[in-house]
Simulated assay, not measured.
Amino acid sequence: MSGPRAGTAELDVGGLRVTYRNGAAAVRGVDLAVGAGEVLGLVGESGSGKSTVARAVLGLLPRGAAVTGNIRVGGRELVGADPRAWRAVRGDVIGYVGQDPFAAFDPRLKVGASIAEAWRAKGRTPPAGAIPERLAALGVPDADAAARRRPHTWSGGMLQRAAIAAATALAPTLVVADEPTSALDAGLADATLAHLRATGAAVLLITHDLRLAARHTDRVAVMYAGRIVETGDSGEALSRPRHPYTQALLAALPRPGHPLPEPLPGEPPSPRRGADAGCPFAPRCRRVRAECSDDVPAPIDGVACVAAR
Protein backbone atom coordinates (compact mmCIF):
# COMPACT_ATOMS: atom_id res chain seq x y z
CA MET A 1 0.00 0.00 0.00
CA SER A 2 1.77 3.11 -1.24
CA GLY A 3 -0.83 5.59 0.02
CA PRO A 4 -4.38 6.77 -0.59
CA ARG A 5 -5.38 7.39 -4.18
CA ALA A 6 -6.13 10.98 -5.16
CA GLY A 7 -9.48 12.04 -3.72
CA THR A 8 -9.79 9.03 -1.37
CA ALA A 9 -7.90 10.37 1.67
CA GLU A 10 -9.99 10.74 4.81
CA LEU A 11 -7.25 12.97 6.26
CA ASP A 12 -5.14 15.09 3.92
CA VAL A 13 -2.48 17.32 5.49
CA GLY A 14 -0.46 19.55 3.18
CA GLY A 15 2.38 21.97 3.93
CA LEU A 16 1.39 22.09 7.60
CA ARG A 17 3.40 24.50 9.74
CA VAL A 18 2.81 25.15 13.43
CA THR A 19 4.67 27.81 15.42
CA TYR A 20 3.94 28.32 19.10
CA ARG A 21 3.71 31.70 20.76
CA ASN A 22 7.24 31.29 22.24
CA GLY A 23 8.68 31.01 18.73
CA ALA A 24 9.06 27.23 18.69
CA ALA A 25 8.41 25.99 15.16
CA ALA A 26 7.31 22.46 16.07
CA VAL A 27 6.02 21.50 12.61
CA ARG A 28 7.85 22.74 9.52
CA GLY A 29 5.98 21.65 6.43
CA VAL A 30 4.31 18.26 6.94
CA ASP A 31 2.49 16.40 4.19
CA LEU A 32 0.61 13.19 4.99
CA ALA A 33 -2.61 11.43 4.10
CA VAL A 34 -4.68 8.65 5.64
CA GLY A 35 -7.11 6.71 3.47
CA ALA A 36 -10.52 5.42 4.52
CA GLY A 37 -10.05 2.43 6.80
CA GLU A 38 -6.25 2.81 6.77
CA VAL A 39 -3.98 2.98 9.82
CA LEU A 40 -1.04 5.36 9.39
CA GLY A 41 1.66 5.36 12.05
CA LEU A 42 3.40 8.68 12.74
CA VAL A 43 6.65 7.72 14.47
CA GLY A 44 9.77 9.45 15.77
CA GLU A 45 11.59 10.59 18.90
CA SER A 46 9.98 12.68 21.61
CA GLY A 47 9.98 16.30 20.48
CA SER A 48 9.84 15.49 16.78
CA GLY A 49 6.44 17.19 16.41
CA LYS A 50 4.13 14.16 16.32
CA SER A 51 1.76 15.30 19.04
CA THR A 52 1.66 18.82 17.62
CA VAL A 53 0.41 17.33 14.34
CA ALA A 54 -2.25 15.43 16.30
CA ARG A 55 -3.37 18.56 18.16
CA ALA A 56 -3.51 20.52 14.92
CA VAL A 57 -5.73 17.85 13.32
CA LEU A 58 -8.00 17.97 16.40
CA GLY A 59 -8.02 21.77 16.59
CA LEU A 60 -6.64 21.65 20.13
CA LEU A 61 -3.52 23.78 19.80
CA PRO A 62 -3.04 26.44 22.50
CA ARG A 63 -4.05 30.03 21.92
CA GLY A 64 -1.47 31.99 20.00
CA ALA A 65 -0.20 29.04 17.95
CA ALA A 66 0.16 30.01 14.30
CA VAL A 67 -1.02 27.38 11.81
CA THR A 68 -0.58 27.50 8.05
CA GLY A 69 -1.04 24.94 5.31
CA ASN A 70 -4.00 22.61 4.90
CA ILE A 71 -5.82 20.09 7.09
CA ARG A 72 -8.68 18.47 5.20
CA VAL A 73 -10.87 15.83 6.85
CA GLY A 74 -13.38 14.22 4.52
CA GLY A 75 -12.60 17.01 2.06
CA ARG A 76 -13.44 19.74 4.61
CA GLU A 77 -10.74 22.39 5.17
CA LEU A 78 -10.13 22.99 8.87
CA VAL A 79 -7.18 25.39 8.94
CA GLY A 80 -8.73 28.71 9.90
CA ALA A 81 -12.02 27.10 10.97
CA ASP A 82 -13.90 28.88 13.76
CA PRO A 83 -14.73 27.21 17.10
CA ARG A 84 -18.24 26.29 15.95
CA ALA A 85 -16.88 24.42 12.92
CA TRP A 86 -14.39 22.53 15.12
CA ARG A 87 -17.15 21.55 17.56
CA ALA A 88 -19.19 20.24 14.65
CA VAL A 89 -16.48 17.87 13.45
CA ARG A 90 -15.18 16.61 16.82
CA GLY A 91 -16.98 13.42 17.73
CA ASP A 92 -19.05 13.19 14.54
CA VAL A 93 -16.13 13.27 12.09
CA ILE A 94 -12.96 13.06 14.23
CA GLY A 95 -12.56 10.88 17.31
CA TYR A 96 -9.70 11.01 19.79
CA VAL A 97 -8.01 8.38 21.96
CA GLY A 98 -5.34 9.66 24.36
CA GLN A 99 -2.44 8.17 26.29
CA ASP A 100 -3.85 7.63 29.76
CA PRO A 101 -7.26 5.94 29.94
CA PHE A 102 -7.64 6.78 33.64
CA ALA A 103 -7.20 10.49 32.91
CA ALA A 104 -9.87 10.26 30.21
CA PHE A 105 -12.66 9.27 32.62
CA ASP A 106 -14.21 11.27 35.46
CA PRO A 107 -13.62 9.17 38.60
CA ARG A 108 -16.95 10.38 40.03
CA LEU A 109 -18.96 8.97 37.11
CA LYS A 110 -19.69 5.42 36.12
CA VAL A 111 -17.90 4.40 32.93
CA GLY A 112 -21.14 4.13 30.98
CA ALA A 113 -22.11 7.67 32.00
CA SER A 114 -18.76 8.99 30.76
CA ILE A 115 -19.20 7.24 27.41
CA ALA A 116 -22.71 8.69 27.16
CA GLU A 117 -21.15 12.17 27.18
CA ALA A 118 -20.13 11.56 23.56
CA TRP A 119 -23.82 11.81 22.62
CA ARG A 120 -24.85 14.37 25.22
CA ALA A 121 -22.13 16.81 24.14
CA LYS A 122 -23.99 16.94 20.83
CA GLY A 123 -27.42 17.34 22.44
CA ARG A 124 -28.35 13.71 21.76
CA THR A 125 -29.35 10.72 23.87
CA PRO A 126 -27.49 7.41 23.55
CA PRO A 127 -29.63 4.79 21.78
CA ALA A 128 -30.99 2.13 24.11
CA GLY A 129 -28.38 -0.55 24.75
CA ALA A 130 -25.75 1.20 22.60
CA ILE A 131 -23.11 1.55 25.33
CA PRO A 132 -22.97 -2.09 26.51
CA GLU A 133 -23.19 -3.24 22.89
CA ARG A 134 -20.14 -1.16 21.96
CA LEU A 135 -18.20 -2.30 25.02
CA ALA A 136 -19.03 -5.95 24.29
CA ALA A 137 -17.92 -5.52 20.67
CA LEU A 138 -14.56 -4.29 22.01
CA GLY A 139 -14.12 -7.40 24.13
CA VAL A 140 -15.30 -6.10 27.52
CA PRO A 141 -16.84 -9.05 29.41
CA ASP A 142 -20.22 -8.62 31.13
CA ALA A 143 -20.41 -5.21 29.50
CA ASP A 144 -23.76 -4.18 30.97
CA ALA A 145 -22.53 -4.60 34.56
CA ALA A 146 -19.09 -3.18 33.73
CA ALA A 147 -20.63 0.03 32.40
CA ARG A 148 -22.21 0.60 35.82
CA ARG A 149 -18.84 0.51 37.60
CA ARG A 150 -16.51 3.45 38.19
CA PRO A 151 -13.18 3.68 36.31
CA HIS A 152 -10.95 2.79 39.26
CA THR A 153 -12.44 -0.73 39.22
CA TRP A 154 -11.39 -1.27 35.59
CA SER A 155 -7.99 -2.44 34.39
CA GLY A 156 -5.99 -0.07 32.19
CA GLY A 157 -6.43 -2.23 29.09
CA MET A 158 -10.19 -2.56 29.53
CA LEU A 159 -10.57 1.14 30.27
CA GLN A 160 -8.68 2.00 27.09
CA ARG A 161 -11.27 -0.07 25.22
CA ALA A 162 -13.94 2.05 26.89
CA ALA A 163 -12.06 5.12 25.66
CA ILE A 164 -12.20 3.70 22.13
CA ALA A 165 -15.96 3.13 22.58
CA ALA A 166 -16.35 6.80 23.56
CA ALA A 167 -14.12 8.05 20.73
CA THR A 168 -16.06 6.08 18.11
CA ALA A 169 -19.54 6.41 19.63
CA LEU A 170 -20.77 8.68 16.82
CA ALA A 171 -19.01 6.65 14.09
CA PRO A 172 -16.36 9.22 13.11
CA THR A 173 -14.55 8.54 9.86
CA LEU A 174 -11.16 9.48 11.39
CA VAL A 175 -9.67 8.61 14.78
CA VAL A 176 -6.53 10.32 16.10
CA ALA A 177 -4.80 8.07 18.65
CA ASP A 178 -1.90 9.78 20.46
CA GLU A 179 0.30 7.15 22.17
CA PRO A 180 -2.82 5.14 23.14
CA THR A 181 -0.80 2.17 24.42
CA SER A 182 1.97 3.91 26.38
CA ALA A 183 0.40 2.90 29.72
CA LEU A 184 -0.22 -0.72 28.67
CA ASP A 185 1.92 -3.86 28.54
CA ALA A 186 2.71 -5.46 25.18
CA GLY A 187 -0.20 -7.89 25.14
CA LEU A 188 -2.77 -5.27 26.05
CA ALA A 189 -1.23 -2.84 23.57
CA ASP A 190 -1.67 -5.33 20.72
CA ALA A 191 -5.26 -6.07 21.75
CA THR A 192 -6.11 -2.37 22.05
CA LEU A 193 -4.80 -1.52 18.59
CA ALA A 194 -6.53 -4.54 17.08
CA HIS A 195 -9.82 -3.26 18.51
CA LEU A 196 -9.06 0.25 17.26
CA ARG A 197 -8.52 -1.05 13.74
CA ALA A 198 -11.73 -3.08 13.96
CA THR A 199 -13.76 0.14 14.25
CA GLY A 200 -13.22 0.61 10.51
CA ALA A 201 -12.27 4.28 10.86
CA ALA A 202 -9.18 5.80 9.30
CA VAL A 203 -6.61 6.00 12.11
CA LEU A 204 -3.70 8.37 12.62
CA LEU A 205 -1.63 6.52 15.24
CA ILE A 206 1.02 8.58 17.02
CA THR A 207 3.64 6.32 18.58
CA HIS A 208 7.31 6.06 19.44
CA ASP A 209 7.10 2.24 19.39
CA LEU A 210 8.42 1.11 16.01
CA ARG A 211 7.65 -2.56 16.60
CA LEU A 212 4.07 -1.75 17.51
CA ALA A 213 3.77 0.36 14.37
CA ALA A 214 5.15 -2.49 12.27
CA ARG A 215 2.47 -4.85 13.60
CA HIS A 216 -0.56 -2.59 13.49
CA THR A 217 -0.20 0.01 10.74
CA ASP A 218 -0.51 -0.12 6.97
CA ARG A 219 1.97 2.69 6.37
CA VAL A 220 4.35 4.75 8.47
CA ALA A 221 5.53 8.34 8.30
CA VAL A 222 8.80 8.95 10.15
CA MET A 223 9.08 12.43 11.64
CA TYR A 224 12.22 14.29 12.66
CA ALA A 225 12.62 17.91 13.77
CA GLY A 226 9.18 18.92 12.54
CA ARG A 227 9.41 17.24 9.13
CA ILE A 228 8.48 13.92 7.55
CA VAL A 229 11.73 12.26 6.46
CA GLU A 230 10.45 8.88 5.26
CA THR A 231 7.11 7.34 4.33
CA GLY A 232 6.21 3.92 3.05
CA ASP A 233 4.48 0.62 3.66
CA SER A 234 5.15 -0.45 7.24
CA GLY A 235 6.76 -3.76 6.36
CA GLU A 236 9.11 -2.14 3.87
CA ALA A 237 10.01 1.02 5.79
CA LEU A 238 10.64 -0.76 9.08
CA SER A 239 12.49 -3.78 7.71
CA ARG A 240 14.49 -2.03 4.97
CA PRO A 241 14.64 1.62 6.06
CA ARG A 242 16.26 4.08 3.67
CA HIS A 243 16.64 7.29 5.68
CA PRO A 244 19.63 7.30 8.07
CA TYR A 245 17.35 8.50 10.86
CA THR A 246 14.95 5.55 10.46
CA GLN A 247 17.96 3.23 10.31
CA ALA A 248 19.32 4.74 13.54
CA LEU A 249 15.97 4.38 15.33
CA LEU A 250 15.82 0.70 14.43
CA ALA A 251 19.46 0.15 15.40
CA ALA A 252 18.63 1.55 18.85
CA LEU A 253 16.10 -1.24 19.48
CA PRO A 254 17.28 -4.25 21.51
CA ARG A 255 17.16 -7.51 19.55
CA PRO A 256 17.58 -11.04 20.91
CA GLY A 257 20.79 -12.69 19.74
CA HIS A 258 22.32 -9.41 18.54
CA PRO A 259 24.93 -7.13 20.11
CA LEU A 260 23.80 -4.32 22.36
CA PRO A 261 21.68 -1.71 20.57
CA GLU A 262 23.41 1.36 19.21
CA PRO A 263 22.06 4.53 20.85
CA LEU A 264 21.35 7.40 18.52
CA PRO A 265 24.10 9.98 19.10
CA GLY A 266 23.47 13.64 19.78
CA GLU A 267 20.22 15.49 20.40
CA PRO A 268 17.45 16.67 18.09
CA PRO A 269 17.69 20.35 17.13
CA SER A 270 15.71 22.87 19.15
CA PRO A 271 12.31 23.78 17.69
CA ARG A 272 13.21 27.40 18.46
CA ARG A 273 16.04 27.39 15.92
CA GLY A 274 15.75 29.49 12.80
CA ALA A 275 15.07 28.20 9.32
CA ASP A 276 17.05 25.08 8.46
CA ALA A 277 20.04 25.77 6.21
CA GLY A 278 20.40 22.10 5.33
CA CYS A 279 19.28 18.67 6.47
CA PRO A 280 18.42 18.98 10.19
CA PHE A 281 19.63 15.42 10.81
CA ALA A 282 23.09 16.08 9.34
CA PRO A 283 24.84 16.74 12.72
CA ARG A 284 23.82 13.25 13.93
CA CYS A 285 24.10 11.36 10.64
CA ARG A 286 26.79 8.77 9.91
CA ARG A 287 26.23 9.12 6.17
CA VAL A 288 26.53 12.90 6.03
CA ARG A 289 28.11 14.43 2.94
CA ALA A 290 28.95 17.95 1.84
CA GLU A 291 25.70 18.63 -0.01
CA CYS A 292 23.67 17.84 3.14
CA SER A 293 24.47 21.36 4.38
CA ASP A 294 23.13 23.05 1.23
CA ASP A 295 19.35 22.70 1.37
CA VAL A 296 16.63 20.86 3.24
CA PRO A 297 16.22 17.71 1.13
CA ALA A 298 12.85 17.37 -0.55
CA PRO A 299 11.14 13.97 -0.30
CA ILE A 300 11.67 11.90 -3.44
CA ASP A 301 10.07 8.46 -3.68
CA GLY A 302 9.13 8.66 0.00
CA VAL A 303 12.52 9.61 1.47
CA ALA A 304 13.99 13.05 2.18
CA CYS A 305 17.71 12.29 2.06
CA VAL A 306 20.47 12.97 -0.44
CA ALA A 307 22.51 9.94 0.67
CA ALA A 308 19.55 7.58 0.40
CA ARG A 309 19.03 8.40 -3.26
Rank of each mutant, 00 (worst) to 15 (best):
V93M: 07
L60F: 06
A26M: 02
D233W: 02
D82P: 13
A163G: 12
C292R: 06
L250F: 09
R219K: 09
D294V: 14
A252H: 10
A162Y: 05
G23R: 04
R309N: 10
V93Q: 11
A167E: 03
F281E: 05
L249E: 02
G129S: 08
A26T: 01
R5A: 14
R286K: 08
V73K: 01
A248N: 08
R134P: 02
A163T: 00
V288T: 11
P172C: 01
G98Q: 09
R289L: 14
V111G: 06
W154R: 12
D144Q: 15
L159R: 10
V111T: 09
L42A: 05
V111P: 12
I131T: 01
A128C: 07
D12P: 07
G3N: 13
D294K: 12
E38N: 09
G7A: 01
A24G: 02
H243Q: 05
R272G: 06
I164G: 01
D301N: 08
A6D: 15
G80T: 08
P256L: 13
R211A: 15
E10G: 04
G95F: 01
A65H: 06
K50Q: 10
P297I: 03
R215N: 10
R63T: 09
R242Q: 11
G14H: 15
A143L: 08
I206E: 08
L212R: 04
D178C: 09
P271D: 03
I131R: 07
T19A: 08
R5V: 13
E236C: 02
D190S: 15
R120W: 11
I300L: 10
A194H: 14
A308M: 05
G3W: 00
L260E: 14
P280K: 05
A118D: 02
G156P: 07
A137W: 05
A136C: 10
D295N: 11
V89A: 09
L253R: 10
S2F: 07
R120Y: 07
V89R: 04
K122C: 05
A183E: 10
P83E: 10
P101I: 01
G95Q: 01
A136R: 12
R289D: 08
G41K: 11
G35A: 13
F105N: 05
D106L: 08
Y245S: 03
A189V: 09
A136S: 15
G41Q: 07
A104C: 12
G98L: 11
V39M: 14
L205S: 12
L253S: 14
G91S: 06
N22I: 11
A251H: 11
D301G: 07
A201Q: 02
A66I: 13
V13T: 02
G235S: 09
L174Q: 01
G200L: 02
P132T: 00
G257E: 12
C305R: 00
P268S: 13
L42H: 00
P127G: 03
S2L: 13
G157A: 09
A225M: 04
T168K: 05
P283K: 00
R87S: 11
V222E: 00
A113N: 14
A128P: 13
V288S: 15
V39E: 02
H258M: 15
S155C: 15
R240M: 08
S239T: 15
V39T: 14
R63F: 10
E267K: 09
I131Q: 04
T153D: 11
Y20C: 04
G41C: 06
A186W: 14
D185R: 13
A308T: 03
M223N: 02
S239P: 06
R76H: 13
A85C: 07
C285Y: 10
G157K: 07
G302H: 02
P180S: 06
